[in-house]
């Protein structure tokens, strides 16, 4: 049984059907990439999994429990972290307050909270230097680190990342992808939504391709990266992409 099992998920925005029966699995310790163009439903898939949107039909099971109708804050408590699109850090709060909120569920265990905070600072020393600074004053890359660090405070079993490389310089993109691999090494499975399909498939074990609310392809990441349809649609069809 997979850690996360999504079955035939249908989600609507008003009368618009954004997800038309999405099914996917993430196993423990895996990195799974969910790729697709703008508006395909990648963000909606993550938002429905983590309880920010209600599915009209279908089920989401996480760690053996049906969480389809569970409120978002309970899903977090079960060990499913979600770094939303656009980072969504609390810009008017300090870096440390942001991390404390990431560990909100540990608020009655201050010692553990501090330990987790120090672990995050060890992964992202830049955040430690800026711990008393307002989060809104951080650079884009630092904000992404904070968003990820905040989600790591609860040591989730699964981390859903929505476009972590968006708007970042190429060097920072490499750093962020390196961190994603490090997160997996520490035992957290990753469901990675990316427009940067090439990078995502390079670090992922498996991948799904989403098109207008449906999964149209799923395979090992390497096979997907080599698939002519994927290369034409999402990898720009460059020759060097195949050579790597």
């Amino acid at each position: 049984m997979a850690l996360l099992e999504v079955r035939d998920l249908h989600t609507f925005y008003g009368s618009v059907e954004a997800l038309k029966g999405v099914s996917l699995d993430v196993d423990e310790g895996e990195i799974v990439a969910l790729i697709g163009s703008n508006g395909a439903g990648k963000t909606t898939t993550l938002r429905t999994i983590s309880g920010l949107e209600r599915a009209r039909a279908g089920t989401v099971r996480f760690a053996g429990r049906d969480i389809t109708r569970a409120p978002a804050h309970e899903i977090v408590a079960l060990g499913l972290g979600h770094v939303p699109e656009g980072r969504r850090i609390f810009s008017g709060l300090t870096v440390e307050e942001n991390l404390n909120l990431g560990g909100y569920l540990l608020r009655r265990q201050p010692a553990l909270l501090k330990e987790r905070r120090d672990e995050v600072y060890a992964i992202f020393p830049r955040l430690a230097e800026r711990r008393h600074q307002l989060a809104g004053t951080l650079s884009g890359g630092e904000q992404q680190m904070l968003a990820i660090g905040r989600a790591l405070m609860l040591q989730p079993k699964l981390l859903a990342l929505d476009e972590p490389s968006m708007g970042l310089a190429p060097m920072l993109v490499r750093t962020i992808f390196g961190i994603i691999q490090e997160i997996r090494r520490r035992g957290t499975a990753v469901l990675l939504v990316e427009q940067n399909a090439r990078q995502a498939l390079r670090i992922a074990d498996r991948g799904y391709v989403l098109e207008t609310g449906r999964i149209v392809l799923s395979d090992d990441a390497a096979k997907l990266a080599a698939d002519p349809r994927v290369r034409a649609a999402y990898l720009g069809g460059h020759v060097e992409a195949a050579a790597r």
């Binding site: 309880g51 409120p71 977090v76 939303p84 969504r88 609390f90 909120l101 990431g102 909100y104 569920l105």
Partner: peptide
């Protein structure tokens, strides 16, 4: 207090507060 911080956080961004485990 943590709950007070959660209050300020959800004034800034409700969905993000939910993802922190805050019972909004």
């Amino acid at each position: 207090t943590p709950v007070g911080t959660a209050m300020r956080a959800l004034a800034l961004d409700q969905d993000a507060a939910r993802l922190m485990g805050v019972n909004v």
